[in-house]
């Protein structure tokens, strides 16, 4: 596997305070990489920094061997990275089709936009079936699918998904993650952030654990899922506490547990 995205020493935050404190991670081409971690770990901030919504103070972000740190959101989109934001990110007062068309806002070729729309309508029938309804009238799961459809309009290489499971019931959740796998199977690389560790890592190929603005573990999703310290971390402790309690050497956790 080749590296599609590499983040090295990224420091970023809001209003002068740093949320990310020197983050290092890689995303392999064709993988589904899931970032997990407790609230406030900086998971969503990583995605915002990649997509250009937040400018990193220090560090480099390399996408397909080209530096993209500090790019505007539009410039990041042009490189082939799209983000599906946390919560419902559709424009509620606009129709489903208008929302999906907005995904191709960068394109000027009308024929190409129509072709992209026809393709996503094939993948997501709801885009055609509910084309002229207001997006705000759809259920949470349906809105997620329309968001996915919108993000595919630019035929991206890397898709950033911020908590795709948020607010969804188990049945809808399964459909949403099946769609994530379908997008991967069609050649896209996915970097997602999940609060729901089992669901997120269960659907991924690779995992990254973050805590307090730093990456604490990386490895295959199976390794991360069965790592003994994950449960402790989510039950309120830190990885250092877990190591002290269990007598493990601190080096095994502060460094990546299973380097790829």
């Amino acid at each position: 596997m080749t590296t599609m995205l590499q983040i090295a020493g990224v420091v970023a935050g809001y209003d002068g305070s740093d949320v990310l404190k020197s983050v290092d991670m890689t995303v392999e081409t064709g993988s589904i990489t899931c970032i997990v971690g407790p609230n406030g770990a900086g998971k969503s901030t990583v995605l915002k920094t990649i997509s250009g919504l937040l400018r990193p103070r220090l560090g480099t972000i390399t996408f397909l061997d080209k530096p993209i740190q500090g790019f505007s959101p539009r410039a990041v989109l042009e490189t082939g990275i799209v983000q599906v934001a946390q919560n419902h990110s559709l424009f509620n007062e606009m129709t489903v089709q208008e929302n999906v068309r907005l995904g191709a806002y960068l394109l000027n070729d009308r024929a190409r936009i129509d072709r992209a729309l026809a393709e996503v309508e094939d993948l997501f029938p709801i885009v055609h079936e509910r084309a002229h309804e207001k997006a705000g009238n759809l259920s949470g799961g349906q809105q997620r699918l329309v968001e996915f459809a919108r993000c595919l309009m630019l035929n991206p290489k890397l898709i950033l998904l911020d908590e795709p499971s948020m607010g969804l019931d188990p049945r809808t959740l399964k459909a949403v993650f099946d769609t994530v796998k379908m997008m991967q199977a069609s050649g896209r690389t996915i970097l997602l952030v999940e609060q729901n560790v089992k669901t997120g890592l269960g659907a991924s190929t690779h995992g990254v654990v973050m805590e307090s603005g730093k990456v604490r573990l990386t490895g295959s999703s199976a390794e991360i899922l069965h790592h003994p310290e994950i449960g402790h971390l989510y039950l309120g402790g830190t990885l250092e506490d877990a190591n002290t309690a269990e007598g493990s050497p601190p080096a095994s956790t502060s460094a990546p547990a299973a380097q790829r």
């Binding site: 424009f91 007062e93 208008e98």
Partner: peptide, 17 residues
């Protein structure tokens, strides 16, 4: 389309280019 997106949520519109 861009103007309507601005009306709905300007920051999201920015994120879409």
């Amino acid at each position: 389309l861009g103007l309507l997106a601005i009306r709905d949520d300007e920051d999201r519109a920015l994120g879409l280019g």
